[in-house]
Design a protein around this nucleic acid. Structure first.
Lengths: 169, 169
DNA sequence: CAGCATACGTCAGCCTTGTTGACATTCCAA
DNA sequence: TTGGAATGTCAACAAGGCTGACGTATGCTG
């Protein structure tokens, strides 16, 4: 795997960007950047009785209102018990509404209430502000590359979910 | 914050890449990609008594052999109690060696043992393989942009740590 | 030298968030 | 009508964060 000989020429194109050193830089960049990525919402959530898991649930419910629990489960990649614990508090606190499905009454469709929307706004405003600053600093071409690499890094399932959300649910 | 009017022209340059929609895509890309980023090492660690925290410790000890506990603390951004719990198991399992400092005897310098190196290799091989595939798929320009955006997304402290590691400790 | 600061380890207790396993309910569909 | 799917819930547990408190060894400074 780690042969250290990636700095070869293949098909006439230099592969210097695939050296172990370059890859390590990419790994550490992901690690440090993800910390920044979650820092602002975490700070806000820390003041309440909520955590990152609540943020994620609220984000994706806002993103796809009326989504079912199973749907959310697949996107978040956690067990129903884990998600349920989070949803229970959000529902009892009046941030999320759970409506029984009309066509399939087994399903629950999830929606944000007024206060749920307000929390989502507060959290995503903070996260977007950082993302906006980073995007502006780096410029449009860098942003395109950023998205391209991240998309290539996803598992196939996650890539499908990502694209579906991106291109309109 | 979220004014939806980011699609304006500023200084003669289109800022279409700074719309809320673009920012949201970036946020979701980070979320889904980070899952992929940690998936392979997590799978390996799941078979042992170790977790992601052990991976991080081992990674940075390998990266900067002889680093002190305080140093590692700053990089990882956790409390000494949290780190100590991880280090204790790694040391007692013989993956990490802790040597009393020569110039300052209060400090402990951390090194990977043979088996520590072996684990680190196994984990980072898996992680590098995915990163390599993503880099290759996306191409050199995309990789440059990827790193640029991630660097801009970091907190100032983390950016300093990242650059220090990148440009040689 | 005395006293304060620093580096580290450790104990105890708490929280969030993930896991598995078991079981009840409801309801669609074959 | 019966099996399976979707959901909810209880219990127990583990990882890995956190705070607070305390102890020890060492280094620095007045």
């Amino acid at each position: 795997m780690s042969d250290g000989r990636a700095a070869q020429v293949y098909g006439g194109e230099s592969l210097l960007f695939l050296t172990d050193e370059q890859l390590r830089q990419g790994i550490e960049a992901m690690f440090f950047a993800y910390r920044g990525f979650t820092a602002d919402p975490d700070r806000i959530l820390g003041k309440m009785a909520y955590g990152r898991a609540h943020h994620r649930a609220v984000h994706f419910i806002n993103r796809a209102p009326g989504t079912t629990v199973n749907n959310l489960l697949a996107i978040l990649g956690v067990t129903k018990q884990s998600l349920n614990r989070v949803l229970r508090t959000l529902i009892s606190d009046g941030l999320v509404e759970s409506r029984v499905g009309t066509v399939d009454k087994r399903e629950r469709h999830l929606f944000l209430t007024e206060s749920g929307l307000k929390l989502e706004q507060e959290l995503s405003d903070a996260q977007r502000a950082r993302m906006r600053a980073a995007f502006r600093d780096a410029g449009p071409e860098a942003v395109a590359g950023f998205k391209q690499v991240l998309e290539a890094m996803m598992d196939a399932d996650m890539r499908r979910a990502y694209i579906k959300l991106r291109d309109g649910a």
